[in-house]
Design a protein around this nucleic acid. Structure first.
Length: 488
RNA sequence: GCAGACGUAGCUCAGUUGGUUAGAGCGUCGGAUUGUGGCUCCGAAGGUCGGUGGUUCGAAUCCACUCGUCUGUACCA
C-alpha cells in the first residue's frame, strides 16, 4: 500500500506577491515619472540596503521575547540583531549620521525601495511594498516643508492626476500639542492618553466626527460587535477637540505661525486649496514627527476588481522629523521629507486608467519547420535581422515537430506576426508572413476546421529579402488599428 | 491582538436526515488534424474533502482543538 508521496505545495508567504510583467513595466513607468519631478527639484538619489541593525531602525529594540514584532528580524552570526527596514526614513537618518562629515547640508535626496512590515496583511496591504521618498536634511525652516508639499502636488500631476483628484493636506504637530495642552493633557504623565487622542483624531476620515467623539469619550463598537475603548475625556474636552479638528476653532501658537508661513508660500506660488490645504485633522506618524506633517490624499472613488467602491485615502505622507539624526550624532540636524506608497498609488492609477498596462507588443515569432542544423541557422538569422531592425523577435524554442503548437504558442503569447518557412518556401526563396491579429478576427467567421486550416487566413507570401520591410509595415498597420480602436 | 464568517480538483462551486468507488463547469494535457491558432467532437490526468484527535458499524457531513483565508476592529514607525 505505497502511499503517493506528498507533493510539495508551492506557496507564497502570506502578505507577499509575485509581480507580473505588466506590473513591473507599470511600476517602472511610474517611478520614472516621479524621479523626473524629484530631479527637477534638485534632489539626488542615494540607496541604502534592505537590512539595518535593529537598534538603528528606531523603537523596536531587539526584545528577546518578540524580536519579530512588527519587523522581520534575524540574528547575525555575532549575535547582533538585524532587521529588514520598515521605512526609508530611519535608514536615511542612519546614513546621514554615519557620513555627517562628508555630506553637504542641506542634503536633498530621494530613493525608491522595498520596505517590509511583519504585520497582518489586508486587501491592498502587503508585508513587502515599495516606497519612494524625498527628504531635505539640515534645513530648519518651514520653507523646506512647503517645498515638499508643492513637490508632492507636482508629482501627483506628473502621474496624470487632474486638479481636484488629489489634495495635499497639511497640519502641524505643534498645533495639536497646543490643543492637548489646553485640555489639560500636557506633561509626561499624560503621554499615553495623548496618543489615544491623536489616534482618535486620525480616524476622522474613517468614522467621521461622531465616531471620533465616541473614541474620545467612552469608546466605540465596531461592525463585528467588538468594542474599542476610548480616551475617556470629559465632554468639554471632547467639544474642544471636535471644534478644533472641524476647523471651527484656531489656536494662536508657534505651530499656527508656521502653518501661516507655509500657507503664504503656497499662495505666492499659486498652489491654491484645490492642491494644498491646511487641515487640522492630519496626524500621521505619532512617534517622530515634530513640526509640519502632510499627506497626499486621493479624492476620487476607486472600484476594485470585485466591483466594490473603495475610498482610497492617503497614498503618501511625511513631515518634519527634527530628532531622528540627533539620536545618532547628538547634533541638531533638522530634516523634513515624505514618502509615496508606490504599490498603493499604482493600484489607484490603474483604476483611474492612467496606466497603460499592455503597451508592449509581444515578439514576432519565427517558427521552425525543419530541425536540421542548416535550417535552424536560417531561422535564427531571420530573428537576428528583425532584432537588428529594432523589432522584438524570437525563434520558437519548444518542440518544433508539432507545428500546430507553435502557432498556439504564438496565439497565447499574443504574438502579432508569425514567420513560416518550410522546405517549399525555402526552395522558392520565399517566406510566409502570417498576421495573427487579423487571422484571429477572421476566425470568428469560419466555423469549419478544414476551411480554417486550408484557407490560411491573413497570410501572405513574400520574397525572403522582404522579411524586415514586410514585418515592419504590418506592425505599423496593426499599431494604427490599435490607435483607431483606442479613439473609438 | 480581539470579534465574526468561511475552508471539497489548478479556478468557480454541487454534494440529500451521516450510507458503496466524492461530482459538475471552466482550465490543463492527448487525439480527431504527421505543414497552420479559433470552433466542434472524443479521451485522459488531476482530491490526504485544510490538519489532528474524537463520536459512530460507517464522517466531506456531527464534536473539540489547530492551521489557513476573508470581513470588521486594534496597532502601524
Amino acid at each position: 500500500m505505497a502511499k503517493k508521496p506528498n507533493k510539495l505545495k508551492a506557496r507564497l508567504p502570506r502578505g507577499f506577491v509575485d509581480r507580473s510583467a505588466d506590473d513591473i513595466r507599470a511600476t517602472d513607468e511610474m517611478i520614472g515619472k516621479i524621479r523626473a519631478v524629484y530631479e527637477q527639484y534638485g534632489f539626488d538619489p542615494v540607496e541604502t540596503p534592505a537590512f539595518e541593525y535593529t537598534d538603528c531602525l528606531g523603537k523596536f529594540l531587539p526584545d528577546t521575547d518578540r524580536p519579530n514584532a512588527g519587523v522581520f528580524s534575524v540574528q547575525d552570526d555575532d549575535e547582533q540583531w538585524m532587521s529588514l527596514r520598515y521605512d526609508l526614513t530611519a535608514p536615511l537618518a542612519r546614513h546621514v549620521s554615519e557620513n555627517i562629515n562628508e555630506i553637504q547640508l542641506p542634503y536633498r535626496t530621494y530613493r525608491a525601495g522595498w520596505v517590509f512590515r511583519n504585520e497582518k496583511p489586508g486587501p491592498g496591504r502587503f508585508r513587502q511594498f515599495m516606497q519612494f521618498d524625498a527628504d531635505t536634511v539640515g534645513a530648519p525652516g518651514v520653507q523646506a516643508d512647503a517645498e515638499m508639499c508643492m513637490m508632492m502636488a507636482d508629482t501627483m500631476e506628473a502621474l496624470g492626476m487632474a486638479r481636484g483628484q488629489y489634495v495635499i493636506r497639511v497640519n502641524n504637530r505643534k498645533v495639536l500639542d497646543g490643543v492637548l495642552e489646553a485640555i489639560g493633557l500636557g506633561g509626561e504623565e499624560n503621554a499615553e492618553r495623548r496618543l489615544t487622542v491623536l489616534r482618535a483624531i486620525d480616524k476622522l476620515d474613517k468614522f467621521g466626527l461622531e465616531g471620533v467623539r465616541l473614541l474620545l469619550g467612552e469608546g466605540r463598537k465596531d461592525d463585528s460587535g467588538d468594542f474599542t475603548k476610548g480616551a475617556g475625556l470629559p465632554v468639554e474636552a471632547q467639544d474642544k477637540i471636535i471644534g478644533f479638528i472641524s476647523g471651527e476653532a484656531q489656536l494662536d501658537n508657534e505651530g499656527q505661525t508656521e502653518l501661516d508661513t507655509m500657507a503664504g508660500i503656497f499662495a505666492t506660488c499659486g498652489y491654491e486649496a484645490d492642491r494644498i490645504k491646511i487641515d487640522p485633522s492630519v496626524v500621521r506618524g505619532l512617534e517622530y514627527y515634530t513640526g509640519p506633517v502632510y499627506e497626499a490624499e486621493l479624492l476620487f472613488d476607486v472600484t476594485n476588481e470585485k466591483g466594490e467602491v473603495v475610498q482610497f485615502g492617503s497614498v503618501g505622507g511625511g513631515g518634519r522629523y527634527d530628532g531622528l539624526v540627533k539620536r545618532f550624532t547628538g547634533r541638531d540636524v533638522p530634516a523634513t521629507g515624505f514618502s509615496i506608497g508606490v504599490s498603493r498609488l499604482m493600484t489607484a492609477l490603474k483604476n483611474l486608467g492612467k496606466l497603460q498596462t499592455s503597451e508592449v507588443v509581444a515578439p514576432v515569432l519565427v517558427t521552425v519547420m525543419d530541425g536540421d542544423t542548416e535550417a535552424l541557422g536560417r531561422y535564427q538569422k531571420m530573428v537576428q535581422e528583425l532584432r537588428q531592425a529594432g523589432i522584438r523577435a524570437e525563434m520558437y524554442q519548444g518542440n518544433w515537430k508539432k507545428f500546430g503548437n507553435q502557432l498556439k504558442y504564438a496565439d497565447r503569447r499574443n504574438c502579432p506576426i508569425a514567420i513560416i518557412q518550410g522546405s517549399d518556401e525555402f526552395e522558392a526563396g520565399e517566406i510566409q508572413v502570417k498576421d495573427l491579429i487579423e487571422g484571429k478576427r477572421l476566425s470568428a467567421e469560419i466555423t469549419d476546421n478544414v476551411t480554417w486550416r486550408e484557407s490560411r487566413p491573413a497570410q501572405l507570401t513574400v520574397k525572403r529579402d522582404a522579411l524586415v520591410e514586410t514585418v515592419r509595415a504590418l506592425l505599423d498597420s496593426q499599431a494604427d488599428d490599435r490607435a483607431q480602436a483606442e479613439k473609438a
